[in-house]
Design a protein around this nucleic acid. Structure first.
Lengths: 143, 143
DNA sequence: TGTAATGTCTCTAGCAACTAGAGGTTCAAG
DNA sequence: CTTGAACCTCTAGTTGCTAGAGACATTACA
């Protein structure tokens, strides 16, 4: 059995994050020691590693919840898992496309900055006037 | 003079967002009508458009706050604005790099999924075992 | 056996950047 | 003059955690 600290360091997840996952129902409530400390079986490590890995791949917790419930039913079709993964891929690609447009515009803006005074600054000017943009970049990916 | 609704639709910013910007000190408190409604001068439109545009380019509000205070001092050097923009460019590029690695891994994962049952599902399997990854993708950009 | 240093517990509050809703007032049109 | 849209303030929710307070548990070492 693992304490929460061991579990966290083994899985590469911080202790408060584990408690948070428990709180939102992503991890089951573990048994407790005589002194009320959480004690995890080995299997919890797999589940937590799964979550961590999926998070690193950008899956939102809701999607991970779905994937976990799928992985608990090994005999069902994995079509649902495929759909979730594909949605995540599409979202990732959309984000990349958008970020590349932003990158191009930032580059343009910075290249044009002669670094004189604010009043001639292209950075400030471009930001102030959307008409300077080469691309459209409406609706917000943002940060 | 513009009402908050006119201002919002002209700048492409939602009304509650404008109030939020005021609350956090990004927009000055405007005068009010006899009936306590906000009335904005034309200049507020420029300022709000500036904010919106910078947000679209992924600048965090703190950076925008700095840029706005710079743009209020037209005689100073624009080196500071340049630094902020360059930091934003670097952050954008880092995010792109990371997302491309994620994209590649998601593609690989999905390609390998034969869409049988969950127990043979590569999506689930890859998520469960970090050792399957082609790349490292530690520390979290995530979604 | 004592004690000191971790580790753990619960709880609350905070971060970005908004968004949504309740419950009420004011304004513009017909 | 009434209806309906737009406005007001306030609180709370979103996502995915992180930080801190104050108290208890466990472990290591002397």
């Amino acid at each position: 059995m693992l304490t929460i600290g061991k579990l966290g360091s083994s899985a590469g997840v911080k202790v408060p994050t584990i408690r948070y996952y428990e709180q939102i129902g992503l991890l089951p409530e573990p048994d407790r020691s005589a002194g009320n400390q959480r004690l995890y079986p080995r299997a919890a490590l797999d589940r937590l590693a799964f979550i961590r890995h999926a998070r690193e791949l950008g899956f939102p917790l809701d999607a991970i919840r779905d994937l976990l419930s799928l992985s608990d039913k090994p005999d069902q079709s994995c079509a649902a898992a495929d759909i979730i993964a594909k949605a995540q891929l599409a979202a990732t690609r959309a984000r990349i496309t958008r970020l590349r447009a932003l990158e191009a515009e930032l580059e343009r803006m910075i290249d044009q900055c002669a670094c004189g005074t604010i009043s001639d600054c292209r950075v400030i000017e471009v930001l102030g006037d959307h008409a300077h943009c080469a691309h459209d970049h409406h609706e917000g990916e943002a940060a």
